[in-house]
């Protein structure tokens, strides 16, 4: 199953916030609440943290396994934990109509 971003959703990374989150990751801080990208779709706005943003950027037709493998290189977390986090994220994205599967 390949997963894609909804092409109607407008999105952008927030450069300063992303740099701040990356800096936090290096020093071991909790960066979960730092919004590093914004999505606008159907009159509704969403803010993603750095993990959400990195998942979002990979949604160009990759499978769940490919997304997990790709992110494991950047985030020091057990594969099963990461997989569950990604599945939860994708489920929320799907509910909002922000992604589709083929």
């Amino acid at each position: 199953m390949k997963i894609f971003r909804n092409p109607d959703a407008m999105w952008r990374e927030e450069d300063e916030s992303r740099d701040q989150a990356n800096q936090g990751l290096e020093t071991g801080e909790d960066v979960a609440d730092i919004g590093t990208s914004i999505i606008l779709h159907s009159g509704k706005m969403h803010s993603l943290n750095i993990l959400g943003t990195e998942i979002w950027k990979l949604l160009d037709g990759k499978s769940l396994d490919e997304i997990v493998a790709s992110l494991q290189e950047g985030f020091e977390v057990e594969e099963e934990v990461l997989r569950e986090d990604i599945k939860t994220f994708l489920s929320e994205m799907k509910e909002e109509g922000l992604i589709y599967e083929e």
């Binding site: 927030e14 450069d15 300063e16 916030s17 919004g35 914004i38 606008l40 706005m45 803010s47």
Partner: peptide, 9 residues
Amino acid sequence: DLIPSSPLT
């Protein structure tokens, strides 16, 4: 809490 880095609209 969040002010984007530039206007969205």
